[in-house]
Amino acid sequence: MAEEKRVPPHRRMLIWLVLQWILQVIFGIWLRYRARHEERLPAQGGGVLVSNHQSFLDPLLIGLPLSRPISFMARDSLFRIPLLGPFLRYTYVIPISRRSASSTSFRAAIENIENGNLVGIFPEGTRSEDGEVQRFKPGFLALLKRTDAAIYPIGIAGAYQALPRGAWFLHPRAVRVVYGEPIPAATVKEYCARGAEKDLLALTQERVIACQREAAIWLDPESQD
């Protein structure tokens, strides 16, 4: 984390804006990228974005139509990969250990939310093996209990086909992203206050699955039959 803090904020934002523009062009052409309901995300203020996880593209796909960056949590081993590591540090990614959620990463996520920033999480823990939404892990609920933030469910379809597990090249497949209705901070607080974290987890997964299905039908209307 110390290495991340040495990146000047103005330079970081400039690099993010340049990368955002480049990726919008590339993904718009190569992946025929489309998104809907991004207006459901707050223009300012903190929040927790929760999405299904189909490929390594997902953080980029979720943030593509937005005018503000998202701090996604990614495993710390990725930061040791040449070229990818510096890229992650310049794009607001928070490193986290897959063996145990480090207190440093946890505090960084809380600080981001309290400072009015968006934090992105993939509760499945790893990329889906078949493109379907896998069972959510409850670890992110601890973050919600420590913050006053709403949950913003997101569904992705097509990313699994565009960059499946083991693929080295980006396939020209269409991708759709749907931003769902948020679960308000007051509702999150209510669930946590009465010890109903399991119900909150189930509700969050249900909302993400609904978004993913909407994205899949948008991508392939015949899948509705």
Rank of each mutant, 00 (worst) to 15 (best):
N52I: 04
A109E: 03
P42N: 13
E114S: 14
T126C: 00
D76Q: 11
V93Q: 03
P123T: 13
G120L: 07
S77Q: 10
L41S: 08
I62D: 00
L88F: 02
G85M: 12
L23G: 12
R40S: 09
G116R: 14
S55C: 06
D130P: 03
L61F: 11
P69E: 12
L83P: 07
N115H: 14
R68N: 05
R34M: 00
R107Q: 15
F106I: 06
R80V: 08
S102L: 07
V50C: 13
G46L: 08
Q20I: 02
F27H: 10
P123L: 12
G46I: 05
F87V: 10
S77E: 14
W30L: 12
V119A: 09
P82T: 04
E124C: 08
Q44D: 11
R98V: 03
E38P: 08
P95E: 05
H53V: 12
G46P: 08
P65Q: 01
E114H: 15
E129L: 12
R32V: 01
L23R: 04
W30K: 09
R36Q: 11
T91L: 15
E38T: 10
G131V: 02
P69L: 10
P86R: 03
Q24Y: 06
I29V: 15
N52A: 10
G63L: 00
P123N: 15
L41R: 01
W30I: 01
R32P: 02
R68D: 03
R107Y: 02
S71P: 04
I121P: 04
S102N: 13
P95F: 05
E114V: 03
Y92P: 01
I62P: 00
R99N: 07
